[in-house]
Design a protein around this nucleic acid. Structure first.
Lengths: 209, 209
DNA sequence: ACCCCAAACGGACTTCACCCCGGATAGTAT
DNA sequence: ATACTATCCGGGGTGAAGTCCGTTTGGGGT
């Protein structure tokens, strides 16, 4: 044997069976959610239906909220792809203001779409990632940085502003709309109003006027 | 007996013993929290320490989150008093921009102070009131209305803007900071930065420049 | 092919929020 | 004072999240 070896090279990926189980659990979770909603997805039920032990479910996702977070992760990744590499104005190519506006509109649509899961991913014992390292904060900060370089913005503390704008964008959905609720006209109408309001907020911050 | 009587006049207040128990429970809850933090306030422990049945605790507050909400209510009321009737710039008398800025700063301080309880008052099965009918949204909307009357603002949809500003103000605290966490310099420093950022955000929205 | 052990698995166990409902009681009408 | 009833109280019961730890297994090393 080697006299000396580093314990791990790369942070060591999941074992094959673990990865398989993760996928399987996510698939079953999606099924259960579309059949009977977020509320009825219990850890016991999920484990049983997936033919796995409950311990396994927890090992894979850490908590009930973790399952929803993992589910969102998928969708998020797709969304992020559009933002980073898709066509303008959402993707690169348009001017900063247009991109910020487009991002807000797209993000609102996304949040409306995944609202139930988004809510379920909240965890009483865990800080929420939305405002912190969340996609919105990061992307908005990036755009604000660009805006400042272009002289559209003179704010010193871009980090704080990014966080506040991200909260302004996502907050109303995460904090306001009811858990599962009738997805009738109500939320959708409000979403349009919020999107318009976001647009004018962005324009004021970037002093387009 | 009277031939006919309305079932209730005023929404019928709490019975004396019930009110007494509520106060007592809140007092004990405050003690327990300051002794060992929010996490260890369980319904069983509270009931036992208060020498009351668990059922009573639930009857009085509805849920665990309800206790924290009731606790916050006190503090909120005091805060609101300052905002409505206190000295300017927080209270009435100063110009709109100054009042908005002052409100934000005061609110941030308040949130920082009551952060642990604020988080604990969140309830997985209940929509959050912060953005909805919350004090911040209401007060900000009022000030925005005044600003519009004074020609400082031309936004049509004041409701949406109020919600977004409230989210920008409170979101970072409710969503971002960790549950109980070390109340060291970290959060406080961030709070100052956010307060400054709030000020410049308000000034831009009210186009003071 | 075999060894080895870190990682994964399973499911009983613990803890806790919340429900239920029979029994007690405060406040009111007589 | 007495009776009446809406409200309250108590604490055992239930369902679900999360923990623990003994057992099993994937897969790199030899």
């Amino acid at each position: 044997m080697n006299a000396f070896r580093l314990p791990v090279g790369p942070p060591s990926a999941e074992r094959a069976d673990a990865a398989r189980n993760r996928e399987h659990l996510l698939k079953v979770a999606r099924e259960m959610i579309s059949e009977s909603g977020v509320r009825r997805l219990t850890m016991d039920a999920l484990a049983e239906r997936a033919q796995l032990g409950k311990g396994t479910v927890f090992r894979r996702f850490g908590s009930r909220a973790g399952i929803f977070a993992a589910l969102l992760d998928d969708a998020d990744r797709t969304f992020q792809q559009q933002v980073l590499y898709g066509p303008p104005p959402l993707g690169p190519g348009a001017d900063v203001t247009a991109r910020l506006v487009a991002y807000g509109r797209a993000r609102i649509e996304f949040l409306l779409e995944h609202h139930a899961i988004e809510r379920a991913a909240l965890d009483r014992n865990q800080q929420v990632t939305i405002a912190a390292g969340g996609m919105s904060t990061t992307h908005i900060r990036m755009l604000l940085g660009q805006a400042r370089r272009e002289g559209l913005l003179h704010t010193a503390d871009i980090d704080s502003l990014a966080m506040q704008l991200a909260a302004a964008l996502e907050g109303p959905f995460v904090m306001y709309l009811a858990p599962e609720e009738n997805a009738t006209a109500g939320p959708a109408r409000r979403a349009v109003a919020l999107a318009d309001s976001w647009e004018s907020l962005v324009e004021q911050v970037l002093k387009v006027q």
